[in-house]
Design a protein around this nucleic acid. Structure first.
Lengths: 159, 159
DNA sequence: GCGCTGACTTCAGCATACGCAAGTCAGATC
DNA sequence: GATCTGACTTGCGTATGCTGAAGTCAGCGC
């Protein structure tokens, strides 16, 4: 099987999933909102306070994220309160957890404060810390050089 | 063990590894340059052509990334050519692979073109496709609700 | 029907990111 | 010493992201 890296100029980066993903979650505040949402935050002013971004920016970001279907705007009502709206993660949003986790792992390793990480995600069943790792569909763990890059159905070749 | 999500307002998001990571790799073009670097690209004009960003932006980005120690600027010389410089991944840069992979997985699933993904990373030994997954240090695979969030040494509490 | 509150919106103003076009610069080839 | 080329830099103009301060709006409690 030919490895695409051997002839990098025979194909283009049109139709790149990384680029399309970055068009959606490419800004700093969007990622930090996802971090908070994955920690359970749902309300506008909690997002504002915990992410540390201003109200206008937050309103704009949340609107984008609802449009991108990362979040859903859902009415709720507490007893004796009027109807309000909260922002719940969709499945599409929840599935960004490996991205955020990988980012947190990397940040913990390479940009750590001298005090160490502030929070640790652990496995509920055994208490061991959780990391994002590479694994193949057969269950093997992937070491650094063990990867081939092959053509998918959407590859755009150049000739 | 107390789960920090139960009392989200008792601690702050200062010292957040995700935020610090985003300060370094938070822009679209930085991520796309990392994608190319992980595919083996090393030279200035190859980056310009393959990432699809202009020369001024590329020069600025590469300079930042060298300063952030994601890339190293290394002199090389081809026979009959003058000395030039290429950009090689450092270990710090190479360890962003799980982040990029998680992002590509997510993009393939949720933003796919109708044609399907353009490239697939496979395990060299068995040929199966590779994904970024969550795993705990004891080797268990992590399902969606199986995560606790506990305090790390660097947590900043609010009182 | 008035105040309160959470959830926004509106309005400057600034900083960064990017594009395009053109210019520079160093050194190997001729 | 003129030419060529890869690797940038300079100089614009535009778009996006953010901040801070102030204003709006929809009800529930009184």
């Amino acid at each position: 099987m030919e490895d695409l890296r051997d002839d990098r100029d025979s194909w283009t980066s049109e139709n790149c999933s990384v680029a399309r993903a970055m068009d959606i979650v490419g800004s700093r505040s969007t990622v930090l909102i996802m971090r908070e949402a994955l920690l359970g935050t749902r309300r506008f002013d909690d997002f504002v306070r915990r992410v540390g971004v201003g109200e206008p920016a937050m309103a704009a970001r949340l609107k984008e994220m609802v449009a991108a279907e990362l979040l859903e705007r859902i009415p709720y009502r507490e007893p004796g309160q009027r109807t309000r709206h909260e922002y719940q993660l969709t499945r599409k949003g929840r599935e960004l957890l490996p991205v955020i986790t990988a980012l947190r792992n990397w940040g913990d390793t390479w940009t750590a404060a001298d005090t160490g990480p502030s929070i640790v995600a652990t496995h509920h069943d055994c208490g061991e810390p959780i990391r994002a790792v590479l694994r193949c569909a057969a269950g093997h763990e992937i070491a650094d050089g063990d990867i081939d890059i092959i053509a998918g159905p959407g590859l755009v070749r150049r000739d």
